[in-house]
């Protein structure tokens, strides 16, 4: 007996957002990456089109970080001492995008200078042809102080600047507008706030095609279900035609999973937890794949093995 599969009909769709610009379009990237454009919930291929597969960004830093896991140091080795070398290694590991996080301080302990930030960004742009996301250190004043010169020095590249938050979005959105870049709008796991920030940023004049939203998530075991629900609800609203939610979503999985006990601690944990490295990679991979199933368009990861596994899962999921 033939079973008819019930289908939802959606009236809305997610904006397609293109990261990076090739030379002809005013940038220096050798390729661009387009995310979003979904006309249905994740991987419901029988129901509607998913024109762009979810992609993986690999997080690198402008200098060797002081607080990353030895497992990550083992994986990236001496490349961590040089952002250009790290970006190259990340590209070789399968990254679709590079996400460069600027540090709060240089290795000398002084605050990162605008010149140092620009140099790091330029070095990465020179080392890889992939589109680039640049995050400030996460303190409003310093973020603005660093991201504005970075945006100006890379005009036309369609970088993604992070992060716009409700208390600090004007400066970053304005410089993105002036220099042909994109922004990430991050809010704390709340659908109302997520939509509100999108409204505020687009009110400034930045087109929705240049905004990604980061609804924030927790790692597996640390609130992932809330992150999942928020993303699912935002995506359903988008597909139902709620214009201010129709943006692709990015989540920073790496930073969340590598600070969990399961990811971070090798000694003094129950034997049943098994091999540390395998467990840490599983934690990052499972968190990422779960949120991709929810609606993530870009996942930011740290370990090269996680990149490989997540990309393999996406390939399977995209197979019709």
């Amino acid at each position: 007996m033939a079973v008819e599969i019930p289908k939802d009909t959606w009236t809305g769709e997610v904006h397609a957002v293109t990261l990076g610009a090739i030379e002809a379009d005013g940038g220096t990237r050798t390729k661009t990456v387009t995310v979003g454009g979904e006309k249905t919930l994740p991987f419901m291929h029988f129901e509607g089109e998913t024109p762009n597969a979810p992609v993986v960004a690999v997080e690198i830093k402008d200098r060797r970080p002081d607080d990353w896991s030895p497992l990550l140091e083992e994986a990236w080795g001496s490349a961590m001492d040089d952002p250009a070398a790290w970006a190259k290694a990340a590209e070789e590991a399968g990254a679709d995008l590079i996400q460069l996080s600027l540090s709060l301080t240089g290795s000398d302990g002084n605050p990162t200078t605008p010149q140092a930030a620009v140099d790091a960004v330029k070095a990465v742009l020179g080392a890889t042809g992939l589109p680039l996301l640049v995050f400030g250190p996460g303190q409003a004043d310093l973020d603005n102080e660093l991201l504005v010169p970075v945006a100006e020095a890379t005009k036309g590249e369609r970088l993604v600047l992070g992060l716009c938050e409700d208390k600090n979005y004007r400066t970053i959105a304005a410089t993105a507008m002036a220099n042909d870049h994109l922004v990430i709008a991050r809010t704390a796991m709340d659908v109302n706030l997520a939509k509100q920030l999108n409204i505020l940023i687009s009110d400034m004049g930045l087109p929705l095609e240049r905004i990604l939203m980061d609804p924030t998530t927790g790692a597996l075991g640390y609130g992932i279900e809330y992150g999942y629900s928020v993303m699912e609800r935002l995506r359903m609203a988008a597909l139902q035609g709620d214009a201010m939610t129709q943006l692709p979503m990015i989540v920073t999985i790496g930073i969340e999973t590598w600070k969990t006990k399961e990811g971070k601690v090798g000694d003094g944990v129950p034997e049943a937890w098994g091999d540390w490295k395998e467990r840490a990679i599983n934690w990052e991979t499972l968190t990422a794949v779960t949120l991709i199933e929810s609606a993530a368009d870009i996942v930011v990861l740290r370990h090269p093995e996680s990149v490989k596994r997540v990309k393999a899962a996406v390939t399977d999921l995209m197979t019709v």
Partner: peptide, 12 residues
């Protein structure tokens, strides 16, 4: 619950 609430829901 057809459209997600925000404080500026009347403006969009």
């Amino acid at each position: 619950d057809k459209v997600i609430y925000t404080d500026s829901y009347l403006q969009v």
